[in-house]
Design a protein around this nucleic acid. Structure first.
Length: 647
RNA sequence: GCCGGUUUAGCUCAGCGGUAGAGCAACCGCCUUGUAAGCGGUAGGCCGUGGGUUCAAAUCCCACAACCGGCUCCA
């Protein structure tokens, strides 16, 4: 039979001579499709456009509109980049170069470090390679031949990579001009198909991601079909930069960092207001559920961490020192202290579940290179709690915590997904207990009707954990809330309670945090809302703007009434035009501006303007207070906040 | 911690061997102001810190620190 039947995505079936390439099929369908074609999905597998079709199949032509099409485009782009680098520095050794969501990178071992100053030369060479429109040819080769081939070319890493390919799998190489790379593909038909390229940055990266291995140069780039798409992407990056909490925090007077205390935030009055709102919100959800808040020491003898196991597992990450020949550490987490509190009294089964909450300071040594604004700090405070339970209470307690999580993330409009992190390599304790703990967490999620993924080997050393990954306005995910089940610390601290039968029994410990580090949480919220906090969170809710000096008395009266009603307000009494005052309030993202002049002072009204909106006209001051009360009580999201969180 | 980069006025940045500059903010005047920047003036800097090269260093070299982009790590 010399023809084959090809079924297209719309269900239609067309016949072609056997051996017709996917690209030829695209051409037969239409010249525009052929021009846009980047790759082909043949019976569900993404392949080169140049792949000959040998039998009846399903065929989909992939273009820029398909994520897989973009991936192929970026994958070829990274080959072009590698080729350019090899032309400029032939001694360069290649390792791996995958596509990314918005670009690509290649990890290379270069004779000297690449710097951004080299980018223009590399980009120019890339454009030349694109200009040359080199055909890209796939070849399946013999394993030994490939090893010899790459060894001769000095591509030592490629030889190592070949050894990692499982026996029996085909070894494929791709050629474009003088450049040959070990690669599974697929790729574009020729280098000329790439239109717009740009190198983005260069960074260090370890071979195989292992710190003990040699550090390579990771060269990042991106590519698009249209210049306008690149421009839009660069603009997006600019926008993201504008809502960077490290920029917004100081601008909005929330917090600042100083060289004298790396990794610690200075909370400015407005930021600390926000901080206290979040902390008190947490209290208001926990106290009715029977949590008891404590404050425990922040400096401990190393002995307590030897007991807990942290000394062995995390000594390198604690600030430790010696005093009177005794080793001490600044508290990096609350659990050991809470274990001591549990032991402070004889506990009855009637005391369980015992919920101990603490918002105290924690200090962890984070290596200097890892610090990142509020998102990675050395000094922090968690909305932390430990729940001591009987084994039969585990499920109900996890479900209760689940309720708090839903309330908090629901109010903030942040969806989450759950992962169950299981026993890591450096685990402590009896594997049988681990299995029970993992099963208990899984059962609780089943009961709550929440789907979860497994995150194998990512649990804490003392127990498995449920990780809540929340998604922010920019679509990034953050792990904030966590529920961890721990059979180990109760054992190591020899915690017991007296059960109904008079026997001493071992409690189980649930470690849980919902916002996680409040510092980090504020960093995330700042970027999520782009600083446009909804009125119930905003450090300043209202700013009163008098038109002229003669309205200052009325403005002051409005201000003091707002404060008396429990709102966070300020007045702008500077000698400036109203437009100027409004601009400043807008820049500070204050939810409500109250303009007051002759008309308002006479009639006891205020002229209301919401941030991001126009003048909304005047209303009696009492009516405005009602409006404000309602929006705060409802945790309402105003138009500007909604806009900031929906991109 | 590792690789690369950056560090000049409160902020954003220019200056890149020859006596420190701009805009915005701040302060002081004038204007008494009606919904996103009124006008004029004043003041402000051991050019991240410490060494070195040079007749001369913000500028060149070295070390350290902080920060930025990544990597590794994250109880």
């Amino acid at each position: 039979m010399s023809t084959i039947r090809v079924r297209l995505p719309d269900g239609s079936v067309r016949e072609f001579p056997r051996g017709t390439t996917a690209l030829a099929v695209a051409e037969a369908i239409g010249p525009r499709l052929a021009k846009a074609a980047l790759a082909a999905r043949i019976d569900g597998v993404v392949r080169d456009l140049t792949t000959p079709l040998e039998k009846d199949c399903d065929l989909e032509i992939l273009t820029w509109e398909h994520p897989e099409g973009r991936e192929v485009y970026r994958h070829t782009s990274t080959h072009v980049m590698a080729q350019a680098v090899k032309r400029l520095w032939p001694e360069t050794k290649l390792t791996v170069g995958p596509p990314l969501e918005n670009g690509f990178y290649y990890d290379i071992d270069t004779p000297r470090p690449i710097t951004p100053d080299d980018f223009p030369a590399i980009e120019a060479e890339m454009r030349k390679i694109i200009e040359e429109d080199l055909p890209i040819i796939r070849e399946e080769v013999d394993r030994e031949w490939a090893k010899r081939f790459f060894a001769e070319r000095g591509e030592d890493y490629k030889v190592l990579l070949i050894d990692k390919i499982p026996e029996g799998e085909p070894i494929t190489i791709y050629r474009q001009g003088e450049f040959v790379d070990l690669c599974t593909g697929p790729h574009l038909p020729s280098t000329g198909r790439i239109k717009v390229i740009k190198l983005m940055s260069v960074a260090g990266a370890y071979w195989e991601g292992d710190q003990r291995n040699k550090q390579l140069q990771r060269l990042y780039g991106t590519s698009f079909e249209k210049q306008s798409d690149l421009d839009r992407y660069l603009k997006q990056l600019e926008e993201a930069k504008k809502r960077d909490h490290r920029k917004l925090g100081p601008e909005l007077g929330l917090f600042t960092f100083k060289e004298e205390a790396p990794g610690f935030a200075f909370w400015l009055p407005k930021g600390y207001t926000l901080y206290r709102i979040l902390e008190n919100w947490s209290r208001s959800l926990q106290e009715p559920r029977g949590y008891q808040e404590v404050r425990t020491p922040w400096l401990y003898s190393s002995k307590i961490y030897e007991t807990s196991g942290h000394w062995f597992h995390f000594r390198e990450n604690m600030f430790t020192f010696e005093s009177e020949s005794q080793a001490y550490a600044v508290k990096p987490m609350n659990c050991p202290g809470h274990c001591l509190l549990f032991k402070n009294e004889v506990r009855s089964y009637r005391d369980l579940p015992l919920k101990i909450a603490e918002y105290g300071p924690l200090v962890r040594y984070e290596p200097s290179g890892t610090l990142h604004g509020l998102l990675r700090v050395r000094g922090m405070h968690q909305d932390d709690a430990h729940i001591f339970v009987r084994e039969d209470q585990i499920e109900e307690q996890i479900l209760e915590v689940q309720g708090i999580i839903d309330e908090i993330y629901g109010a903030l409009g942040m969806p989450y997904t759950v992962k169950l992190a299981t026993r890591p390599e450096n685990y402590m304790g009896d594997p049988a207990l681990w299995e029970r703990a993992e099963a208990a967490l899984a059962a609780a999620m089943e009961k709550a009707g929440i789907k979860y993924e497994l995150n194998p080997g990512e649990g804490a050393f003392y127990g498995p954990k449920l990780e809540y990954h929340i998604t922010d306005a920019l679509g990034r995910t953050w792990q904030c809330a966590t529920i961890q089940l721990d059979f180990q610390l109760p054992q190591r601290f020899d915690l017991t309670y007296v059960d109904a039968d008079g026997q001493h029994k071992r409690p189980v410990m649930i470690h849980r945090a919902i916002m996680g580090s409040i510092e980090r949480f504020i960093g995330i919220l700042t970027e999520h809302f782009a600083g446009t906090f909804p009125v119930w969170l905003a450090p300043v809710q209202v700013r009163v703007l008098p038109i002229a000096d003669r309205h200052h008395d009325y403005a002051q009266k409005i201000l003091s009434d707002l404060k008396a009603a429990g709102f966070r307000a300020e007045a702008d009494l500077r000698n400036e035009k109203i437009g100027y005052k409004i601009r400043e309030a807008e820049v500070q993202k204050i939810p409500f501006m109250l303009v007051v002049g002759d008309k308002e002072a006479e009639s006891g009204t205020v002229s209301v303007r919401r941030r991001g909106m126009k003048d909304e006209g005047s209303m009696p001051f009492a009516a405005f207070l009602d409006l404000l009360r309602r929006e705060v009580a409802e945790k309402a999201m105003d138009e500007a906040a909604r806009k900031a969180t929906t991109l």
